[in-house]
Design a protein around this nucleic acid. Structure first.
Length: 432
RNA sequence: GUGGCCGUAGCUCAGCCUGGCAGAGCGCCUGACUGUGGCUCAGGAGGCCGCGGGUUCAAGUCCCGUCGGUCACCCCA
């Protein structure tokens, strides 16, 4: 038994699984570029306040899920639990408002939350997120949210439905909260303890409660739509119209509330039936007040966060195409010390020519080297012994057929390259 | 943070109920006459039975704790 394990809720991604990540990440970079998004990388750690002031003091995320510590200089820092606040911080810090507007940014980055781990919920997970900062128009909402939808379709998950809602803005939300309090007031005693607290702090969240009792009461609550101000109502209509235009399926769900305080107007989520309890694939929305909460000028923004660990879990269950691993193509097999040393030169030559090549690092017998070539899935073995050295040749063995030919040592790299690329397996050579 | 279930070799698991020498398959390594893999055969390495404590003549097996995983709650991606 190893003495150490990875920290709870965190895991190693080993060869075999890592290829899925690489393929997915490549797909995302490509998708984001096609939609005109540029990548941004921010530190894994931020000043704790960045999240406290934006995500909300009373949210679970800030209240009990952050990895917070003070560094040796006495600064209070946190591992980032989500991406949007950090991106906005960077936007403000570097004056990106002076770049051509709107600014379209995306990231693939690890997030940290001190949760109780289970399948699909990790203390370190990776999110793909994108933000459009600088446009208040509904088309911006539809355009960022199209990204995760297209990604899902692209990886083969076509049965996805976006759930949409509007949570109002600074103008109309207070009215709605008041209306909710009015509605829940006579029911407070019947709500769960959490919701009784929510009644005081954030009655919107009661709508989100999954407890049967609370849910039954919440079902009778007045829907937000009657309370949206004209601007918010128009915005919501605009987003819907854009979704229709793009042919993106969605449903209206007045119970989508989002667990982060910075959201205004648009709120969106997508779930998967394949994920058990941890079923949210992505969530997002508009956050027009976020920049001001960070001390910046009023700046509209909209974005989402997508859980890639969960996407891969679903993809695995759906049996989606497994990316080819980049195993070796050629194994150099040598006999005797002189050939062994020459074999190193040969292997390196092939590698520089672009061929995935391996050799013997254990001074093994020819049989063992051949066996190793087979285990690693090499297509060709190049046998090099005293005979070949003397003749200036190499014995080439097709592993699949066992067919052997003698070829010249000189100019071998181009010859092999041609041979390998000419009769590539049909599904190789695309999508990287 | 709450409750349930589960931790035995690198992997998948049997053994636990009913305490008595730690096992299988796969994988890994070596060999089967001189320089050739896959199939087969033979051999080998590898386990503080997650960790700690308790009960017992004796604990992988029973009890408690703890760490980790998992399911649900909660929360969320």
């Amino acid at each position: 038994m190893p003495t150490f394990q990875a920290p709870r809720g965190m895991r190693d991604i080993l060869p075999g699984e890592v290829e899925r990540w690489q393929a997915l990440e490549a797909e995302i970079h490509d998708l984001a570029a096609r939609y005109g998004f540029r990548e941004i990388r921010t530190p894994v750690v931020e000043h704790t306040e960045v999240f406290q002031r934006t995500v909300g003091e009373t949210t679970d995320l800030v209240e009990k899920e952050m990895y917070t510590f003070s560094d040796r200089g006495g600064r209070l820092l946190s591992l980032r639990p989500e991406g949007t606040a950090a991106v906005m911080r960077a936007f403000l810090e570097h004056g990106l408002a002076r770049q051509p507007q709107p600014v379209k940014l995306y990231y693939i980055a690890p997030m940290f939350r001190y949760d109780r781990p289970q399948r699909g919920r990790y203390r370190q997970h990776t999110q793909f997120g994108a933000e459009i900062i600088g446009s208040p128009d509904p088309s911006a909402d539809a355009e960022v949210l199209a990204l995760p939808v297209r990604l899902l379709q692209q990886v083969g998950l076509t049965e996805v439905e976006v759930r949409l809602n509007s949570v109002g803005d600074a103008a109309c939300r207070p009215l709605y909260l008041a209306a909710l309090r009015d509605y829940f007031r006579p029911h407070v005693a019947d709500l769960c303890v959490d919701c009784q607290r929510r009644y005081e702090e954030h009655p919107l969240r009661i709508l989100d409660c999954k407890r049967e009792g609370c849910h039954r009461i919440a079902r009778g609550a007045p829907p937000v739509f009657g309370y949206l101000c004209d601007e918010c109502a128009a915005h919501f209509e605009g987003v819907r119209a854009q979704f229709d235009m793009l042919g993106i399926r969605y449903s209206i769900d007045p119970f989508i509330v989002r667990g982060l305080d910075y959201y205004t107007r648009t709120a969106a989520e997508v779930y998967s039936g394949r994920l058990g309890a941890q079923n949210a694939m992505f969530g997002g929305g508009r956050y027009d007040g976020l920049a001001e909460q960070l001390g910046g000028p009023p700046t509209p923004g909209v974005g989402f966060g997508f859980g890639l660990d969960r996407l891969l879990l679903v993809g695995e269950q759906e049996g989606l195409a497994r990316p080819l691993d980049r195993g070796i193509e050629v194994m150099v097999v040598t006999i005797g010390p002189t050939a062994r040393s020459e074999g190193f030169r040969l292997a390196d030559e092939l590698r520089q020519a672009g061929i995935r090549t391996d050799g013997d690092l254990l001074v093994r017998s020819v049989a063992a080297q051949m066996k190793h070539a087979d285990r690693l899935g090499a297509r060709l073995a190049l046998v090099l012994g005293d005979d070949e050295l003397a003749a200036g040749t190499v014995t080439l063995r097709e592993m699949a057929s066992g067919e052997q030919t003698t070829i010249a040592r000189a100019g071998i790299a181009p010859a092999l390259l041609d041979r390998l690329r000419r009769q590539e397996p049909t599904n190789e050579g695309q999508g990287r």
